[in-house]
Design a protein around this nucleic acid. Structure first.
Lengths: 226, 226
DNA sequence: AGATTGTTCTTCGTATACACTCGCCGTGAC
DNA sequence: GTCACGGCGAGTGTATACGAAGAACAATCT
């Protein structure tokens, strides 16, 4: 898109508002700010060591992304993902990740597949070490990589956003379910390597279905609404 | 051209930033601001008769939604939907609208179906009157209504955002394809009424496929304002 | 007690200031 | 003539201050 003006340098500077947005998102996902918690602009500005303006701009984007809810003239609170919307989220994600798997299967180069296998290996290793944090990281990396291979920027950005929310729900719940999800990943990469779109879609659906059950259980036992 | 925009923002009770966002989106979709056009904060502030702050907050959200591209320290320009991303957009929309159709079929009440039929009738009438603008409105209303019936807020908000982009591409292209799309709508509503999820999905896919061909042709032909 | 009033906190919007970066353009050196 | 340098203006990025409006809550009054 709009390739004419881009490409020059100076793009390496991340505006403060973006840094704030990233920090805010991760703080919410990590549970540093709990659902229902009030987020006054002053407080966030102080927490992040910036003025209110960057905070306000980051808040608007966070609202658009569904991480916070802004009540007019009342301010922002951390959104509360109810178990109802978790189900809705997975229903959408199921379709999107299935499409991503199909496109990836149809378009993956040998190098793409090699990169996926590399992630798979690292994941296997980390699982044996019981390094759950690293497993979760590699889990994300794998999904993101498949999205990238799909080559559809819309699909990619939408699914990434949803994926962040999934991570949020997972963290809020108690345990990671990482161990047994890894076998599903192998199935998925195998299917992508085969180039068979239908098979890749089915593998993605199976994976998502299992993930949903885990997330849903977490959400049920997790936190209070509002 | 700036006068009418300014007048609309006067006497309402939504936060200014939201009014600016709506005005900005519609201005972009209507082609008042053309792809690649530079959007300086000062100019937008003047166009909408507000200060820079609401404009900035609206711009960040518009960026997140994909309507503008913001280059660090350079400012915002209207995004350019290339024909490549139009194909990607429809690939995603196809899946989402198919899901919406399925959910709607499974959950629609008699009242929901009646509302859809009402829209269908109005659409038929408007088509006979060759009132293309009204037909386009009813077209949107029908799709939005189906999303609402689906009862999945994630699906709804994501698809709405995509739908706005589709409208953008349509307006940039030359003619509306409204007339023959109406038959497909009838098929779709029939399927929803039947409560048969598979059938509703297929109807949605057929509709989207036809719409894609039209949109793609428009995008190929390049953009001309109005 | 119940209604009214007032205080306080916070957002919302405006205004202003200033550093920084980028692109443009004129000037001068070669 | 052309190329490099440097000044200049435009515009963003950030900070800060200020006032208005609204909501929540406590205090006051009847």
């Amino acid at each position: 898109m709009t390739g004419d003006l881009r490409g020059k340098l100076g793009a390496q500077h991340l505006p403060l508002r973006d840094q704030v947005l990233v920090a805010l998102r991760t703080a919410i996902i990590n549970g540093d700010y709990l659902p229902g918690e009030r987020l006054t602009e002053d407080r966030l500005a102080e927490d992040f060591g910036v003025s209110r303006n960057p905070v306000r701009e980051a808040l608007r984007v966070a609202e658009a992304e569904g991480f916070v809810v802004i009540l007019p003239r009342r301010g922002a609170v951390v959104a509360s993902p109810s178990s109802g919307t978790v189900a809705d989220m997975f229903a959408v994600r199921e379709r999107l990740e299935a499409l991503a798997a199909r496109l990836a299967a149809e378009r993956a180069t040998a190098a793409d597949v090699a990169a996926l296998r590399e992630l798979l290996d690292q994941g296997h290793e980390a699982t044996e070490r019981h390094d759950l944090r690293r497993v979760a990281e590699l889990n994300s990396a794998l999904h993101l990589r498949i999205l990238q291979i799909s080559g559809n920027p819309w699909l990619s950005s939408i699914t990434k956003a949803l994926y962040l929310h999934v991570q949020w729900v997972f963290r809020l719940g108690a345990a990671e379910r990482a161990p047994h999800s890894w076998a599903e990943h192998i199935q998925l990469v195998d299917a992508i390597e085969s180039g068979d779109g239908d098979r890749a879609e089915l593998a993605a659906l199976a994976h998502l279905g299992a993930a949903y059950v885990a997330a849903h259980e977490n959400a049920e036992g997790g936190y209070q609404a509002r």
